[in-house]
Design a protein around this nucleic acid. Structure first.
Lengths: 254, 254
DNA sequence: GTACACCTTGACGTAACGAGAATGTCAACC
DNA sequence: GGTTGACATTCTCGTTACGTCAAGGTGTAC
């Protein structure tokens, strides 16, 4: 079986540019070049590419991969066994990273759903404790306790800031909507900024934003008089204008 | 306490070049510049740097960190969630890679034969591949390419089982919609069941469901001819009927 | 024959700095 | 007061592993 760049690329899930680059640096040369100058790869190159991608996945630089594969002591089987060990180790690290991110997320979630500060005091305390565990020693050593305590109190006050930020965003939407409406151009800069602010505001309520949903909600603002009334409050036609701006913003305008 | 580049760099374990770079891209600007043009950092900057390094540890790009730290704090959450999705995806890929290494080892021992395509499993986003291969034709036929590409990005984080479940749900929606349409009553039991199935289907794409968004999307099905065509395929007026059912289901009907 | 997907070789752009050049500043020592 | 040496500054180029055009040749199907 012979492959052109694109076929091999599709097979291995890499771009044609990548293959060209590998050829350029001498990491993976095609079996032959046909009369029109096309790169033609064979079975040996398929296998070699597989090896290369193994190492690449391990985070080895292409230079390193070249060294490894050029070396005389290159033993496929042994190398693979080592790879497996390294892969397992890497997965462990990745799990650690994920756990960290999730822990951070859990804290944030705690903060967000924390309308009632006292209820989650323990949770917050946990966050502060974790933070101290991570940085506490160094920070206290370097800056002294005073700074730490200040920073801790800042963490506790986060929820209120957040609520205010959301409120502010909502107000900004109305504000820029007014200004944008005055321009009369839903495709204009101000209108698009309004749509963007609206998106930001929405994203607080939705975890996963989609253009379709955004456009759908904008349409709903027009269709549902309760929402329409809200956006039409400052100027008649505000809801329609916002919808048009959002449709353009989301690229859903026909 | 005030710090020059080198002192802060030493404190945080980063190079002076890094600090200058962070200044350059606006990620961390010094508190002030003294008469000789030296960068002078204060406590706030030390705090901020600590935060920056925390996210950097998590593998977030500097651009991502800027987004996280620029906006109101709830943006934090979203960026991290996206980051987590990426990490999870990466781990899934790793798992496949490990399986692949083992298969390759067996292959080398002559136990089994591997198809070329198999050799690269785990290198690419396998689920999407599989999904495309298994359902691609049908789905593309049903929804059109554009919509598929959009939903693929959501599918990235899902297991094959989940993908199958979604597909099944989508089919059920159409099925019950047909039956419900025959009754002619969007408030009826069958129609409400359709709306509920539709909600379930949506929830695969949205983490946070809201009635408003659900109703908005249903309305969009009517307004956007691409979607309307899909729901009207089995019977004319299917999209409108579904919207009415959803409006009743969500209590958004006036 | 012409449309169109494929191939080619440049050449520039990217992230997150590292390295080096050319030059200015500060504090200490002789 | 002059020199030394450790700091600081800006500027520019180099790095990795490609992505992304651009300009043009090739293969094939209608």
């Amino acid at each position: 079986m012979e492959y052109t760049v694109q076929k091999l690329g599709y097979l291995a899930g890499v771009s044609t540019r990548t293959l060209r680059y590998y050829d350029e640096i001498g990491l993976l040369k095609p079996a032959r070049i046909n009369s029109s100058g096309y790169r033609i790869y064979g079975q040996a190159e398929v296998d070699r590419l597989q090896q290369i991608l193994f190492y690449r996945e391990l985070g080895v630089s292409l230079d390193g991969i070249m060294d490894i594969m050029a070396g005389p002591s290159f033993n496929n089987d042994l190398a693979l066994r080592e790879h497996r060990e390294k892969l397992l180790e890497k997965r462990k690290q990745l799990d650690q990273l994920i756990a960290n991110v999730e822990k951070t997320l859990a804290h944030h979630e705690g903060k967000i759903t924390m309308a009632n500060a006292e209820k989650f005091e323990g949770f917050k305390q946990q966050l502060i404790e974790d933070n101290e565990q991570q940085y506490g020693k160094e920070i206290r050593a370097k800056y002294g306790d005073e700074r730490i305590d200040k920073s801790n109190s800042k963490l506790k006050g986060m929820t209120e800031e957040q609520a205010k930020a959301i409120e502010k965003l909502g107000a900004q939407v109305l504000e820029t909507l007014s200004a944008a409406y005055a321009t009369g151009d839903p495709a204009g800069e101000l209108a698009q900024k309004t749509a963007d602010l609206h998106r930001q505001w929405l994203r607080f309520y939705w975890d996963y934003y989609t253009k379709e949903a955004h456009a759908g909600v904008a349409q709903m603002y027009v269709d549902d008089e309760r929402f329409a009334a809200y956006y039409d409050k400052q100027q008649a036609g505000g809801a329609v204008f916002l919808r048009d701006a959002v449709l353009i913003y989301t690229g859903m305008a026909t």
